[in-house]
Design a protein around this nucleic acid. Structure first.
Lengths: 206, 206
DNA sequence: AGTATACTAGTCATAAAATAACTATGCAAG
DNA sequence: CTTGCATAGTTATTTTATGACTAGTATACT
């Protein structure tokens, strides 16, 4: 019996069912209504249904009944189990306490910058800066709209805002360095570096 | 003919093959040697081999030959194709220019904080702060070791450092608010809020 | 001399997740 | 009368993650 696999959607399902029993589609709508769709991906319903099936197999949730509000499609209501509740708490503690690397695309691309020319990179990063600014405005607009909502329910937005702000300042920093020429490269220079590192015995080790 | 799917590993494979033809295992070691394993997940080799097979199917790379250095296992050397090179450049431009939400675990967990008690959250976040500090020291140590390496090849570390620093300050900020009681909640208070929102018609819409 | 460990290079099987496309009904707008 | 949207869900395909496994070589200990 291996421990059930952790995932954002699985966590969302368990925590919503801790509040009250409900059916999958309802979870999707609740997540959207509460604005949690910024941090939980529910654009594709299939993932949600698949995850729910898995959690049922693993005994963390249980189908309570198959109901039918008049004139609405049939739907299966799920409830959390004791194990499910315990696992949800355990997952929360682990996620909060221990950071894990999730390998997003942007830093990966950063590490392959030499594939493009410096001015090409400059153009792309300028576009990114613009996009992040728009994104930040959207977040601020959302926070303004939700002025009446207790802060507890807006913390993830606060967090996203902080991270986006940092990314923006890092990007504009690099853009400046590219524009001024403080950061640059060329085919010739790259070949030279490659030759250098080929001769040296790759100093960094452990 | 749908366009090939973008992924950090696929991008890594293409860019390495842009430099020179090589075999999968060599890519894995190169990524580690250059410290890119911080942003490209190569701990599990199987993903790398599977991605390479897919890229070959899609015609972005091609098996050049199956070679055998004496006393070493047989290995297949791959080379990039014209399409592959074009796709790599296209991916780079898209990733750099347009931010995409990748739904990491931490913000997801943040949005379900009420599942734990305030002092439980406090303990977990204190642990996280400590872990991030250690992580930052590790990064700084790495950057110090690599003082001779041109900045171009350390940019992703710079970025990670900036993001981690922001996360640390946000976490310590929240820890302070929890400790002082500026941020708190209780079962009773949560029930009250739930009742309030059940009566109101979910004001946030557009 | 024998044993344990690590490195090189890769395979296989399973499970989980992403993604798109599809069913079926009810309701409202035009 | 039909177009579009909301509700509630299913199916199939592809990708990715993960762990376990093979098999030979080199190195280190004991």
């Amino acid at each position: 019996m291996k421990p059930p696999k952790r995932s954002p959607i699985a966590l969302a399902v368990l925590t919503m069912l801790c509040e009250a029993p409900m059916h999958p589609y309802r979870m999707q709508r609740l997540i959207k209504e509460r604005g949690k769709d910024e941090v939980i991906n529910v654009t594709q319903r299939a993932s949600l249904y698949q995850t729910i099936q898995r959690l049922e197999r693993e005994g963390l949730i249980a189908a309570q009944r198959t109901a039918r509000d008049e004139k609405r499609p049939e739907h299966t209501v799920y409830a959390i189990t004791e194990t499910g509740r315990a696992i949800a708490v355990e997952w929360m503690r682990q996620i909060l306490s221990t950071p894990t690397n999730e390998y997003p695309e942007f830093p990966a691309a950063i590490s392959f910058l030499p594939l493009l020319s410096p001015d090409d990179v400059l153009r792309q990063l300028e576009a990114r800066a613009k996009a992040i600014k728009a994104e930040l405005e959207r977040i601020d607009e959302g926070l303004k709209q939700a002025a009446a909502v207790p802060r507890l329910f807006l913390l993830e937005m606060e967090y996203l805002r902080a991270v986006q702000t940092t990314e923006l300042s890092w990007v504009t920093f690099v853009v400046d360095d590219l524009r001024s020429g403080r950061l640059t490269w060329s085919e010739a220079w790259l070949r030279q570096i490659a030759a250098q590192f080929a001769s040296e015995p790759a100093s960094s080790s452990e």
